[in-house]
Nucleic acid binder design. Structure first.
Length: 262
DNA sequence: ACATTGACCTGAGAGC
DNA sequence: TGCTCTCAGGTCAATG
């Protein structure tokens, strides 16, 4: 579930708690989540260094250790960060633990091991090597680029929005939310969406992602006309009163309102 | 080249 | 109660 807004909230949390802290010790709890790095290399690269800054691209979070070393975290669908004082360790599925010299710790917790822990020399290069598209919220990602992407696609709009090589950050939950917001059916063909609908979708995408971040991705904080608080079978659409439908679209469970999404 | 499907991961909740 | 089955959704490999 951690999609762009979730990871952005993790970034803010990291910045508020762990920035400029010195890593005194590194514990690797799950070898099989380490992508391109051994536990020894990870320990060696991080120990006695500070976290100097952070970056996010799509669903990836980058922690700057120094000029040539960045720790890369991906959260799969169950990953999150937890900062706590030594002794208050209540998490059950900690995969990586950074022990700071001030007695606090930062845990990367990932119950279902679909995330990843890696190292890179340069986030920009990492993004290129992964073949990721532009971050969905970055300002250089404009409506013209977005329109060109849609026109080159034979598939459905839902899977287009979720394709990380085309644009990075949107997953199953927020693709539903965006399409619900602008009134487009998840099974619509991407290239059938023309102006002015392209522009409406583009701005809807930015607005939904931004709003989710402002709400700290807590469904209780969401505006009431958003789908997320009603994202369950047989719920009532807050926009038009019709029943929320659930259907498999491109292999993913899509929630939508047939009343106002065409 | 592009689109879709299935596998992987693990635990919660449904259903018998 | 207790077991088994299904589902959740991140990616990537295999297939259409």
């Amino acid at each position: 579930m951690p999609e762009l807004p979730d990871v952005e909230v993790f970034k803010k949390y990291l910045d508020a708690t762990s920035l400029y802290q010195t890593i005194a010790e590194v514990e690797t709890k799950s070898r099989d989540m380490l992508g391109n790095v051994t536990p020894q290399a990870l320990r060696q690269s991080l120990t006695d260094h500070e976290i100097e800054g952070s970056k996010r691209h799509g669903k990836f979070l980058f922690l700057r250790i120094d000029d040539e070393v960045w720790l890369v975290l991906h959260f799969g669908m169950t990953g999150f960060l937890k900062y706590f004082k030594n002794g208050n360790d209540s998490s059950e599925h900690v995969r990586l633990l950074l022990k700071f010299s001030n007695g606090y710790r930062l845990a990367y917790d990932c119950k279902r091991k679909l995330g990843a822990i890696e190292l890179t020399k340069d986030p920009q290069k990492f993004v290129e090597d992964k073949g990721l598209g532009p971050d969905a919220l970055q300002s250089e990602f404009d409506v013209e680029t977005f329109g060109r992407i849609l026109e080159g696609r034979r598939g459905r709009i839902k899977s287009t929005l979720m394709n990380q090589q085309l644009m990075a950050g949107i997953g199953n939950v927020y693709s539903d939310e965006i399409l619900f917001h602008v009134g487009i059916h998840p099974e619509a063909k991407a290239r059938a969406i023309k102006e002015p609908m392209q522009e409406r979708l583009f701005h809807g995408m930015k607005e939904v992602l931004q709003t989710a971040i402002e709400c700290k991705v807590d469904p209780r904080n969401f505006p009431d006309d958003y789908l997320l608080p009603h994202r369950q079978p047989d719920a009532i659409c807050p926009k038009c009163g019709a029943k929320i439908q659930k259907k498999t679209v491109s292999g993913r469970s899509a929630y939508f309102c047939a009343g106002h999404q065409k």
